[in-house]
């Protein structure tokens, strides 16, 4: 896949795809989309990057350490928001009743915990998709010594 045209085009397209993915994530509570679809778009753009350049470059962009940290962080943001609402005196994963400010409808920073959780889910899904793809495509290095 060492094609100049592919590389050139993907270099132009990639920022837009990633920007779009970020938009879908951040506007999850205002328009169709959300953490899952937006995260997948960001993840797919990273996979496109890796495919059009080469796999080593893609892997280097997001090493295993970073991706495992990101995955855990995304999931922990979700569970953590639930635990915070416990600390605030409401039931698990409560929003308004726990006292998160809802803000003005229509703003990006509105609707309390929804926007934070969507962001966490976005991070998690993006890194998950990348990890799934790379772990399927990667050559194993460990199978010589057994």
């Amino acid at each position: 896949m060492e094609d100049t045209i592919v590389r050139y085009v993907s270099r132009i397209i990639l920022p837009f795809v990633q920007l779009y993915g970020l938009y879908v994530v951040l506007h999850g509570h205002l328009s169709p989309g959300g953490g899952f679809s937006g995260g997948t778009i960001i993840g797919a753009s990273m996979i496109l990057y890796a495919l059009s350049f080469n796999l080593a470059a893609g892997s280097k962009k997001l090493s295993h350490d970073v991706s495992s940290i990101l995955e855990s962080t995304g999931a922990l943001i979700f569970a953590g928001m639930g635990l915070i609402s416990l600390l605030l005196g409401a039931n698990f994963l409560a929003n308004r009743i726990a006292g998160f400010p809802l803000g003005t409808p229509g703003n990006i920073f509105s609707s309390g915990s929804i926007v934070i959780i969507t962001f966490g889910v976005g991070i998690k899904v993006a890194s998950t998709m990348i990890t799934l793809f790379f772990s399927l495509i990667e050559e194993e290095h460990s199978h010589e010594h057994h």
Binding site: I69, S72, L76
Partner: peptide
């Protein structure tokens, strides 16, 4: 258990 499962890979 879910929470600690998320921490476990780290």
């Amino acid at each position: 258990p879910l929470f600690f499962a998320f921490v476990m890979p780290l």
